[in-house]
Amino acid sequence: MSSVIILVDSVGGKVSKATAELATFGKRLGDVTAVICSSDGASLASQLNALAIDKTITCTGVDFEKLSTGAVASALSDVVAKEKPVAILIASHARGKEIAGRLAVRIESGLITDAIDLDADLIATQSVFGGSTTVHSTVTHGTPIITLRGNSIEAIAGTGPTAHEDFAVTYGGADRALVNSLAPAIKGGRPELTEASIIVSGGKGTDGNFAPVEALADALGGAVGASRAATDAGWYPHSFQVGQTGKTVSPQLYIAAGISGAIQHRAGMQTSKTIVAINKDPEAPIFDVADFGIVGDLFTVLPQVRDGVIAKKS
């Protein structure tokens, strides 16, 4: 049976939903070997028991969190040389894409980023030009390296790895960039923006009052997002920004309240399955991509929607 490598994805010591999604794609291609490159190795390995993973390899000997992504790419290239996988799957976020890019250079292999689907023949689907065009592509040289966007597949459950291996690696490259300190992101009770299946976002139109946005998000069990105008004003932390220079999200439902829909914002949310817009201005460009648009005041509409959702749920 051929084997495919997935890179275990984690934030703050917790294995993320992306890992389960990568394993699900991996199963289409063969046995899944999950590679852990983290100083939390043992703890991450213990969180993989319900996933569709056959084997784990924990890379040891390098303080991955302190070094740049070059260290992870280097470790992965050693694992690839040993395991000879049919493909390497990595989560498609900034860090994942950097690792994939460096690995592609190292092992002289083709790279496809931001895939939203991958079939058993290693044909990847990408959604480009803001979701207006669907592209199918394949890697034609080396061991395919594919980064997959979060929320692109319903993760399947599994029974976890039956084999585990520690693999000693070194990183001596010229790249000595060091992370000297880290102030961890503050975790709220809400789902991660990039993992959430429902997102309610607020923009300039909230005038700094995110309470109705948060209240609706909580009623729907969703995450809160923000436009750049809102994060620039300091109304919401930058890590919640959706858009070209913020997070790219693709939830089942995206509700934009008081957001005009500038191209840079749309670049980060246009592939959401259902889009709802609430805006006072009937000409706001956000309505061009909305499946359901309400021309109205968010301070009136959002609380009513929240009440309606709560009523429906009970």
Binding site: S68, G70, G101, R102, V105, G173, D175
Partner: peptide
């Protein structure tokens, strides 16, 4: 990131 890898330069992205 690819430039840092190819050149062996430190990556500060």
């Amino acid at each position: 990131a690819m430039l840092a890898e190819r050149l062996g330069f430190a990556q500060l992205t």
